[in-house]
Amino acid sequence: MTGGYAPGRFVRLLAWATLLYLLLPITIILPVSLTDQRFLSLPAERLSLQHYASLIASPAWRGAIWQSFWIALASTALAVLAGTLCALGCWRLSRRSTEVVRALMLLPLIIPSIVYAIGLYRYFGRLDLLDRFLGVVLAHGVTGIPYVVITVSTALAAFDARLEQAARGMGASLSQTLRWVILPRIAPGILSGAIFAFIHSWDELVLVLFIASRQVFTLPRKIWDGINENLDPAMAAVAVLLIGLTLVLLLADLALRRARDG
């Protein structure tokens, strides 16, 4: 898309500056986490892994990481199961009749989580789900559904519906068709949705602030307390680990897309 038409110098400069602005805070954390000082700063004399060591040695941080991991895993399973089935149903049934269902599934992307959080706080109080593993899994699972519905719908849009009709025509039951014909084709889409649902739960804080307190204490919650109480370099080490994990998951998703587009 050039045709002798290129952006001017000013716009180019602005774009580079913006890119720098986007990437700077994420990259500056790495040297800060390697500081040899006892406070948040750039390394003065040498690089040091002491803050990573203190992180791993701390049972509080380890506990928070484990809890976050299990919650993310369980809520991803929930979101993938419900979201995939829903996307399949919407795909096969006519657009018009499933319009309301689709809109409903996208609501968590539109409504601010603070509104959902205060609603859940009250709602879970009555169901005795506050500060419970199950409660947080349900909340994260339900809000993870949109990501799965979107990625699976995208995968299904590229799937030839005649394959499904052929399978059914040759006598395959619905479950057989799903298992052997449709699922293998949309597996990358499902996995992609799973990755985003996992990141969503792993990073989620607003809901956790309201519906969890002592029993359930996730990693974002621990970071939140850390930021509000004491800013020590161990926080930078956690931040680097989190960024690293997100990058790995995103690269996995990128590889999936490559494989799918062949």
């Binding site: 929930l78 399949l88 149903g89 409903l104 599934m105 959902y116 709602y123 349900l138 699972g141 619905l174």
Partner: peptide, 25 residues
């Protein structure tokens, strides 16, 4: 009918654990 049934888990979860708390607000 089978295809409609596929919508059920997501629909029920969404209604019971998303829509209901928000309507309550």
């Amino acid at each position: 009918l089978g295809w409609w049934a596929l919508l059920a888990p997501a629909f029920l979860l969404m209604t019971a654990f998303y829509l209901a708390p928000i309507l309550q607000v």
